[in-house]
Design a protein around this nucleic acid. Structure first.
Ligand SMILES: NC(=O)c1ccc[n+]([C@@H]2O[C@H](COP(=O)([O-])OP(=O)(O)OC[C@H]3O[C@@H](n4cnc5c(N)ncnc54)[C@H](O)[C@@H]3O)[C@@H](O)[C@H]2O)c1
Ligand SMILES: NC(=O)c1ccc[n+]([C@@H]2O[C@H](COP(=O)([O-])OP(=O)(O)OC[C@H]3O[C@@H](n4cnc5c(N)ncnc54)[C@H](O)[C@@H]3O)[C@@H](O)[C@H]2O)c1
Lengths: 222, 222
DNA sequence: ATCTTCTTGTGAAGCATTTCACATAGGTTC
DNA sequence: GAACCTATGTGAAATGCTTCACAAGAAGAT
């Protein structure tokens, strides 16, 4: 039901809803292992500390996937959410900066399972260029624009020092890439049609710090 | 002005405000390098793609730090925010799981600069126990509770496989730790007085994926 | 001293998101 | 096949967050 969204509906969907879809997807993937055939909004909510109403409302933006009196079919709902999130296909990902964080990401197997295939690595360190990481040869950063284009890269992960990140991102944008996952602690400037998500670990630690000095009880739904 | 917050004020402060304080802190740290003595809410907003009103409102929850007609004194505001966030002190951090992600975190120098000192590492791999990472000897996980207590650890970073994370977190909670930064992709169950923040990279990639398949323009303030 | 200019600090308005509450509909039982 | 049970789907209410708009305060100029 409701395969594609029109522009109007699409823009009503909040960032939080999308983030929760990721959580539902993860929870459903867990349940699939079990013998669970169906799951209720109540159970789904409990596993991610949300409210049942929230789960139902989120899903209702995209269609009606459940059966009244029964709940949602686990596998089917998982697949529908995968489709909505666009992870029912392969995404070609390149990673720039094969340092501490970069190496950790290349070795991470879960990304492949979700369709995120890291197919290209870039660095400017002569010792790293040409070396093999999990079957991928590190490319020279000087060929960045050409190789991103030639390889039809769709998502770029930035794992270089903040000082060079903006400069490299300008090239990434030139290569026509529309999605960037950024680990460098700075606000990247990109055109309006390029999507950027930031991974900011310092921010999360600072949040914990704030919570502790203020003895702030964690926010939870009832 | 307004050194400590009473319980009532504290709970009015939203998560988003705290997260933005981190951004302001980062932006101010940058500006400090420059010859900037003061900064206006407009400039601060621009550097993190927010609105000036948002900046002023966020800061106003904690006091009035600016001078009308002039703006905010960079160094002073930076210090005030550090105080609010609780990063004007040292936090004793332990990291569990010295694998791909764990190793990357230990090598990261920015955390120390913000007062987050990783002073303890744990693993259950005999080859890793006793080895030296950036001057820290990896401890055996079997001594977890005792060592967390003895070393007065305040924040624990979870960088182990999801399958064992909950089990280890139960011990972390037993040791009296009240703040956890979790990299494992699951929802940890902890008592109400323990704060958990999740670092979920898959979620960010999925958001990018959704944005692209829906050609969703990135949300930005005007 | 007064006037001008600039930017803060903040109630109030405007939006957005979450929660409520219940009509509705599918499944199950007798 | 009727009655009952259960959990969805969804307008409407409640809550929360952001933006507006302007009074007021501070610095510098005249
Ligand atoms: N390590 C962490 O735990 C951590 C945590 C949070 C954020 N970060 C951020 O992630 C980024 C990477 O951190 P890291 O610890 O992996 O650093 P790193 O120094 O280990 O790795 C950076 C890599 O980028 C490469 N590089 C530098 N300049 C380049 C250029 N012009 N072109 C191509 N490659 C270039 C270097 O050769 C190196 O391999 C930094 O911005 C850092 O602030 C790291
Ligand atoms: N590597 C990544 O890029 C990445 C990205 C996102 C999330 N994560 C998550 O971070 C976590 C760690 O990932 P990783 O890639 O570093 O894995 P890894 O296998 O490289 O490291 C895990 C470490 O935990 C240790 N460990 C296992 N069981 C333990 C136990 N019972 N007690 C103590 N130590 C134990 C292992 O010995 C190993 O050193 C996982 O939950 C993973 O899903 C990793």
């Amino acid at each position: 039901m409701m395969a594609d969204l029109n522009a109007e509906t699409r823009n009503r969907i909040s960032e939080s809803t999308i983030r929760r879809l990721s959580l539902y997807f993860r929870a459903l993937s867990f349940l699939e292992g079990d013998e669970h055939e169906t799951v209720s909004s109540k159970e789904l909510a409990k596993s991610e500390k949300l409210t049942p109403a929230q789960v139902r409302k989120d899903l209702s933006f995209f269609g009606s996937f459940g059966t009244r009196g029964l709940g949602y079919p686990v596998t089917e709902l998982r697949d529908k959410i995968a489709r909505i999130l666009g992870i029912d296909r392969v995404w070609r990902v390149a990673l720039i900066g094969v340092g501490n964080i970069g190496s950790a990401l290349v070795s991470y197997k879960e990304f492949i399972k979700q369709g995120f295939h890291i197919v290209k690595l870039f660095d400017n360190d002569q010792r790293k260029i040409g070396s093999n990481h999990k079957g991928i040869i590190v490319s020279d950063i000087k060929d960045l624009v050409k190789e991103l284009k030639d390889d039809s890269i769709e998502i770029v992960v930035i794992a270089v020092p903040a000082t060079v990140a903006q400069y490299l991102v300008d090239d990434v944008v030139k290569a026509g890439v529309k999605a960037i996952l950024n680990f460098a602690p700075l606000n990247l400037r990109v055109p309006d049609d390029v999507h950027v998500r930031n991974e900011n670990m310092a921010m999360e630690l600072e949040y914990l710090s704030f919570a502790m000095v203020n003895d702030h009880p964690p926010r939870r739904p009832k």
